[in-house]
């Protein structure tokens, strides 16, 4: 499983990455966490608002920081 966090480096984007990383550690998940800060790649993925999170290429959330429970639900 690949989790992608999209964000150009804003505070909310770093916070999103932190939330996802914590959940991965807590669940001892072996999912691959990638971060994308390139605008071209972001646009190609269809991201309109940052931060955004995609699981295996499917965008699950955009424009806000996810809650821990949401991240857990995606990973389940």
């Amino acid at each position: 499983m690949v989790i992608t966090v999209y964000g150009p480096g804003c505070a909310r984007c770093h916070e999103t990455e932190r939330v996802v990383r914590n959940v991965l550690a807590e669940l001892q998940s072996d999912a691959d966490l990638q971060t994308v800060s390139d605008y071209q790649a972001m646009a190609a993925a269809g991201v309109l608002a940052t931060p955004a999170v995609a699981i295996d290429g499917v965008i699950k959330l955009s424009g806000r920081i996810p809650k821990r429970d949401e991240v857990k639900a995606w990973l389940a």
Binding site: Y6, G7, P8, C10, R12, C13, Y39, Q40, M42, A43, G46, V47, L48, A49, T50, G63, R64
Partner: peptide
């Protein structure tokens, strides 16, 4: 909903 850090992806997407 809009924040200035989303201005570029939104611009491209539009």
């Amino acid at each position: 909903p809009f924040c200035s850090c989303s201005a570029v992806p939104l611009f491209i997407g539009f």
